[in-house]
Computed example of a mutant assay.
Amino acid sequence: MVRPQFTEKYGAMRFYYSWFILSLTVLLSGCNTTPYDKATIYYDRAQFPAQIIRDHPTLTDPILQHGRCSLIIATPGSNTGTYYFCTYALTTNGLFVQGWDAKTLKYVEIVHVELSMLKTISICSFLRTNQLQLTEERRQMALSASIDEGGYVDTAATERLFEAIKSKGVFVVKSEGMMRPPAPPAQMFIPIIISK
């Protein structure tokens, strides 16, 4: 014979366990959102070459590689810089990096790098993240290619980009570590002491 207290306790535990699982499911379902880079930077692999040439008539060389990316721009020797979501297009002579202007429906140039003007390049790997680091005389950049769906670094595409630029005779150096965007401002807590 089952004691009534045990049955009541078991029923309450089942209720709380079911409630916990339901709450966890609801909370985790809210985490399935569009990656921020896909939401803000338009990119269609099939139509991108034609569209970028239309938006930038100066881009006359054939496009060898293209895709989504993230970019950090800093001064040489710095490991912190301004962060951008972007698309890139590698040609035989240059690397074009651009953002997206949703008002004009055009790609807007962030940076144009002439490969002949590069002093050094390097690649930095940390876990599953690769970062192509390009240094000019007065500018340093770190670019990571992303998958077409956004949200994740495409390590293979970043390595292909590195190899293509290296094949142009750019001097390769060892990376000094990952470049990062600036840390967000932290709240300051100032204690107020009131004497009696």
Rank of each mutant, 00 (worst) to 15 (best):
V153T: 15
Y84H: 15
Y83M: 01
R138F: 11
M178D: 02
K103D: 15
Q187V: 12
G151Y: 01
Y17Q: 08
F15C: 13
T155H: 09
P191Q: 08
K196E: 15
S195W: 09
S125I: 09
N79F: 01
A102L: 08
K106M: 14
V172N: 09
I193D: 06
F48I: 06
I147H: 08
P35Q: 04
T155Y: 12
G81W: 02
E136L: 15
Q187D: 11
I190V: 15
A50Y: 10
L143K: 01
G169P: 11
Q133F: 07
K174L: 10
M178A: 14
G177V: 01
A164I: 04
Y88G: 07
I190N: 07
W19R: 13
W100R: 06
K106I: 08
G94C: 05
P57K: 04
N79Y: 12
A74I: 00
P76M: 09
A50I: 06
N32M: 10
I63F: 02
A39Q: 11
Q65V: 00
S125E: 14
T7Y: 11
A46G: 02
N32T: 08
W19C: 15
I147N: 08
K103Q: 13
T58E: 15
S70I: 09
Y42L: 10
S78M: 13
T34H: 03
A39H: 08
S78V: 02
M1E: 07
I21L: 11
T120C: 00
Y17T: 11
K119C: 00
N130E: 05
T120K: 06
K196W: 00
A145Q: 06
V111F: 01
T25I: 10
G151D: 01
S70R: 05
N93I: 01
K119N: 15
F126H: 14
S18Y: 10
